[in-house]
Design a protein around this nucleic acid. Structure first.
Lengths: 158, 158
DNA sequence: ACTACTAATGTTACGTTATATCATATCTAT
DNA sequence: ATAGATATGATATAACGTAACATTAGTAGT
């Protein structure tokens, strides 16, 4: 993510947290910045390492997890269940400050370049999937789908 | 899973492994049996514990992982990526011995009772999902979807 | 500004999940 | 019977994640 986008993201994050009366502390913001700069999902331990490198300051794994959980609670970051990795939320800009926005995201994960596209899925496709499942009696409670595959760029290169 | 189904499953597994020139050893079969008896997915460590309890014999976690990987390679078991758990393949009976059968499975995971329904998903729904994604340039390589929610039984109870 | 309360971070310990590596045992084919 | 391949044993360690309690830093009420 480029410098400008990053700055905008952080501004939005600030506003959002103020609105929620949550404290986006300097350290939390640094963790978020590391996620923004990465471009691909990171493990908690990678984040811890990058923090130490970038800020020449201790950052225990315990603290990393706590800060990640804060960011996730604030919908500023997501956890990928299939890979145990973390990434910034892609939707911070779009009307995100209204409480109700921001449904459960889907992730298209490129197993080649590791980049993740958050929610390229059309709503009606999801609804159809849900409807189909309901016929069998199953209710999708958590719609966070993680779909692994190959992105366009990587497909072309091959 | 009841006794009869278990016996049939194990017979099929034997036949399948013979066909693949893979060795379904006594220990591997016991691991598979533990999965069959469980009814819900188990972690590798739970399997290790149950093995020790049932057979009063040492079973190191290293061995459990090796045997699970064998079973997975033979399509006799699956790993749930979202929960780090293992369960027996549900499709061993249906024409499973032909090499080509057995596409990637989907899992409907009930977060209440923990039971898993393997591939209640209709093929056309999956195809539609895949088609939709292809339009965006993304190719689903691995179609193993793990969908979390509530099964019919648990929904009724509530 | 002082105090009391709450929230954030530090620190240590531990639990869970998984793999690497090398040694030993067991099967299979000749 | 023996050699080679496969399976298992044993030990160590990496990777992922949480519990519990101490300390520090914000926040609100006076």
């Amino acid at each position: 993510m480029n410098q400008g986008d990053q700055q905008r993201f952080l501004k939005m994050a600030d506003a959002l947290c103020r609105h929620q009366k949550a404290r986006l502390t300097a350290k939390r913001k640094r963790i978020l910045t590391i996620l923004l700069q990465a471009g691909t999902p990171l493990s908690a331990y990678q984040i811890s390492d990058r923090y130490r490198e970038a800020h020449e300051q201790q950052m225990s794994i315990m603290s990393v997890y706590r800060m990640l959980n804060f960011l996730i609670d604030q919908h500023l970051a997501h956890r990928l269940e299939t890979t145990n990795q973390y990434l910034p939320c892609a939707h911070i800009d779009a009307g995100h400050t209204s409480d109700t926005a921001h449904g459960t995201p889907q992730f298209l994960i490129c197993d080649k370049c590791k980049r993740v596209d958050e929610s390229g899925l059309r709503t009606d496709i999801l609804e159809q999937l849900d409807n189909e499942l309901r016929k069998t009696g199953f209710t999708m409670d958590q719609q966070q789908l993680e779909i692994h595959g190959t992105c366009q760029r990587c497909a072309k290169r091959a």
